[in-house]
């Protein structure tokens, strides 16, 4: 019971929590990250279903077996779908609005989320062909930060039929 004769009930108690963790990308993801360090996308093929994952977290999600074979992927891909982010929130480092797209790299069987630049936000389209723009060679690190963004590469849009299964 709050004592109403004093300052009233305590409604908030700030208890800052700070915990530090090590992060282990794992064997498969390390190979992907080492690829980024060299300015290339390394995927991995599932020995069971043959699908190429990028990045692989170590297993084929449908077969539950390790992905073992490295596959060098293209620098070019297709925007399967996208949204335009207009909402500001903590930790954001990109000026809004920005395009957040699912990019299906040529040769891969899964898309991943990428930033699209060098095009006004209202001109992005599903099916647009894009290429990765990397940081300068001296700045390459084993991180997705090595990819500055994707940009339209001028090719004709991919036909909906070619990517509709990757939405």
């Amino acid at each position: 019971m709050a004592d109403e004769t004093t300052a009233g009930p305590v409604t908030t108690l700030a208890t800052p929590i700070r915990l530090d963790f090590d992060f282990t990308p794992g064997v498969a993801q390390s190979r992907f990250l080492r690829g980024l360090e060299q300015g290339k996308f390394m995927g991995q093929r599932c020995p069971s279903c043959g699908k190429v994952y990028v990045p692989s977290r170590g297993s084929c999600p449908t077969d539950g077996v390790p992905t073992t074979e490295d596959v060098l992927l293209s620098n070019v891909g297709t925007v399967t779908t996208y949204c335009v982010v207009n909402v500001p929130f903590a930790g954001q480092s990109i000026e809004i609005p920005y395009i957040c797209a699912q990019v299906l790299l040529d040769g891969a069987n899964v898309s991943f989320m990428g930033l699209i630049q060098e095009i006004p936000a209202d001109q992005i389209r599903m099916g647009m062909r894009v290429e990765a723009v990397w940081v300068d060679e001296s700045e390459l690190t084993p991180s997705l930060a090595s990819v500055r963004y994707f940009r339209p590469n001028g090719e004709t849009d991919a036909d909906y039929e070619t990517y509709k299964e990757y939405l």
């Binding site: 990308p25 949204c83 954001q92 957040c100 797209a101 930033l115």
Partner: peptide, 15 residues
């Protein structure tokens, strides 16, 4: 090691 690209829950579902 992730991309400096944050989108929130809506950013995941909107596409």
């Amino acid at each position: 090691f992730a991309a400096p690209l944050l989108a929130g829950a809506g950013g995941y579902f909107a596409p």
